[in-house]
Nucleic acid binder design. Structure first.
Length: 273
DNA sequence: CGCCAGGACGCCC
DNA sequence: GGGCGTCATGGC
């Protein structure tokens, strides 16, 4: 990654990033695409900082509505610019299927999101579709001045008071997560550093957090790249391409590989962009 | 209209 | 410990 300042904008060059692949692939739900004919622009936020980011062409980006200080202290980390994804993809490509997946969706990067927002988002995601997940999270944030509520704020709610979300049976799960996190019974900062199986068990103390949601929180909210969420699509990939098991050489970064595979298998039958 | 969604729970055996 | 119905809501 390279960057330079141009007026109030920050110009960024990074070959291993595609905005549509990364911000609209189901790992984060609060990025909104601003319609435009000639480039992709997204608005979103991380913790309390907003960002507008555009992709001008392949590998060329403009970060607006931010500062160099914020860019250095927050956005570089959020977009995982400290990691060399071309190196990762080279490593993955020893495997034939992964090689195809990387070629197909090589613009995906793992976003280093906030663990609390991730926990609630993926609780909402269960047995749900992406447009509706976005809608529910939208209504939630609108209630809190367009920012994600803190655990303490959400802990004041009940399943009934959350009915405006229209999140269905998930409301009681949201309330339970908020209660346990705000009271410290579940300490996300500590969990992030635990050995992976202990971290999994700790997250699953929350009602409504099963294997899949726990894995997503670990991967997307705690940057545990060895976490490997298995949903119906990935289960299909594992059956079809990895009957002997997922290759061990990729296990440590398995979650990132999983992102490429997920995007690949979901779009196999659609026409490539 | 019916099917399904980046699942988890409760209950069954 | 695996199999199955159920859980709200709405996108398609």
């Amino acid at each position: 990654m390279d960057y330079c300042i141009k007026g109030k904008d920050i110009m960024v060059s990074e070959q291993d990033l595609d905005l549509d692949d990364t911000l609209d692939c189901g790992q984060a739900f609060r990025w909104r695409r601003i319609p435009s004919d000639y480039m992709s622009t997204y608005q979103g936020s991380f913790l309390n900082d907003r960002l507008t980011v555009s992709q001008k062409s392949r590998g060329v980006f403009i970060f607006h509505d931010t500062t160099e200080e914020k860019f250095l202290s927050k956005w570089i980390r959020y977009f995982d610019f400290e990691t060399d994804y071309s190196e990762l993809k080279k490593m993955f490509s020893q495997d034939e299927t992964l090689s195809k997946a990387c070629a197909f969706a090589g613009g995906i990067r793992l976003l280093r999101q906030d663990s609390w927002e991730c926990l609630i988002s993926f609780i909402i995601s269960q047995n749900n579709n992406i447009p509706r997940i976005k809608g529910i999270i939208d209504r939630l944030c609108r209630q809190y001045h367009e920012s994600f509520p803190t655990p303490q704020e959400l802990a004041r709610e009940t399943p009934d008071s959350l009915s405006y979300l229209r999140s269905g049976f998930r409301a009681k799960y949201i309330a339970d997560a908020a209660e346990k996190v705000s009271a410290g019974a579940v300490d996300l900062k500590t969990i992030a550093e635990l050995p992976i199986n202990e971290a999994r068990a700790a997250l699953r103390q929350i009602t409504g957090v099963g294997p899949k949601v726990a894995e997503c929180v670990l991967l997307f909210g705690m940057y545990r790249t060895e976490a490997f969420p298995v949903d119906v699509w990935i289960r299909k990939v594992l059956q079809q391409y990895y009957p002997q098991g997922f290759p061990a050489f990729a296990a440590e970064k398995g979650g990132i590989a999983q992102q490429y595979l997920f995007h690949y298998i979901r779009n196999l039958n659609k026409t490539p962009k």
